[in-house]
Design a protein around this nucleic acid. Structure first.
Length: 288
DNA sequence: CAGCACACCTGAGGGC
DNA sequence: TGCCCTCAGGTGTGCT
């Protein structure tokens, strides 16, 4: 599942292989891939055709490509299985090819949006004065953004009657963290996923944020190393990062700190992985 | 209004 | 062999 580091590597690939090229033609092969573009597939294609693509940006798991001279941008979310691939025009279509973008140049490559489970998609939106697509104005800055507001995040934790993993996955408080990196950061911070946030001290919040950044930077470092070689990461063919995970998916395997078998618990229609010894559950609270 | 459940998808994998 | 069930999970929506 693409989370922030994966999306950032895709963004870098787009900056290298797609920015500054002019769109010749767009094929939407599956309507669901543009479902967030309310005006429909034909409108999406028409509004891109003939326009030059600017430098890609990212916030959390969203990335966008400015469409020059239009005040709009192509917003992309990869969902759970989406990939943005740069392929030669001769390459055979992928089984789950949803959108193809051809360019008006002689480079010989095209941009493809491929998505098996169709949770992701592309859409065109007006941009706010600071260049952000209007529909993601509610998405918080991510922890790798130098303007991420750690104080605001901490105060939101204090204010909320929620638990820490819910807060980490709440993209309006902190963006870019998904189920995998949430479990990883909580394991590193020795925090149980159901710990209430209202009592977090500032040092505890800071330490957790540090672990979130560390685990993301580690993934980014791995993904960033091979990104120059080909289109390896922008096309995702080698899969997502070879993550060396300490918590996620390790049910029954020994905790890498204390050796206690890791556990998996159903949680919000997904799973939480944790060490029952390092990450003690909070005492039941009478606060409702 | 905050918090939470649920719909949306498809393919892999396990049980029988 | 094949059918059915479960699981994977980010986001927007709608309900309490």
């Amino acid at each position: 599942m693409p989370e922030l580091p994966e999306v950032e590597v895709v963004r870098r690939g787009l900056a290298r292989w797609v920015a500054d090229r002019t769109v010749a033609d767009v094929d939407v092969l599956h309507p669901r891939a543009v479902r967030r573009h309310i005006a429909g597939a034909d409108d999406f294609a028409h509004r891109l055709k003939g326009h030059r693509i600017g430098a890609p940006s990212r916030r959390g798991k969203y990335l966008w490509l400015p469409v020059e001279d239009t005040g709009s941008a192509v917003l992309a979310h990869l969902g759970m299985s989406g990939q943005l691939l740069v392929k030669t025009q001769e390459a055979p279509d992928e089984k789950h090819l949803r959108i193809r973008v051809r360019f008006d140049d002689s480079v010989g490559t095209e941009l493809r949006f491929v998505d098996q489970r169709t949770f992701g998609g592309l859409s065109l939106h007006d941009t706010t004065p600071d260049g952000l697509p209007d529909v993601i104005a509610h998405i918080a800055r991510d922890p790798l953004d130098e303007r991420f507001d750690a104080d605001a995040f901490h105060h939101a934790l204090r204010r909320s009657r929620t638990t820490i993993k819910r807060a980490l996955l709440n993209q309006s408080l902190i963006s870019g963290v998904g189920n995998i990196y949430a479990d990883e950061a909580l394991w590193r911070a020795r925090l149980h996923y159901e710990r209430p946030t209202a009592t977090f001290t500032r040092p505890r919040t800071s330490e957790l944020l540090g672990h979130v950044r560390d685990v993301m930077n580690a993934a980014l470092a791995v993904g960033g190393t091979s990104f120059d070689s080909l289109y390896v990461n922008v096309n995702g063919e080698s899969g997502y990062f070879d993550r060396s995970l300490d918590a996620y998916g390790r049910e029954g395997e020994p905790c890498r700190r204390c050796g206690t078998p890791m556990r998996r618990r159903p949680w919000m229609n997904r799973s939480s992985y944790f060490c029952p010894r390092c990450q003690r559950p909070p005492r039941p609270s009478r606060l409702s």
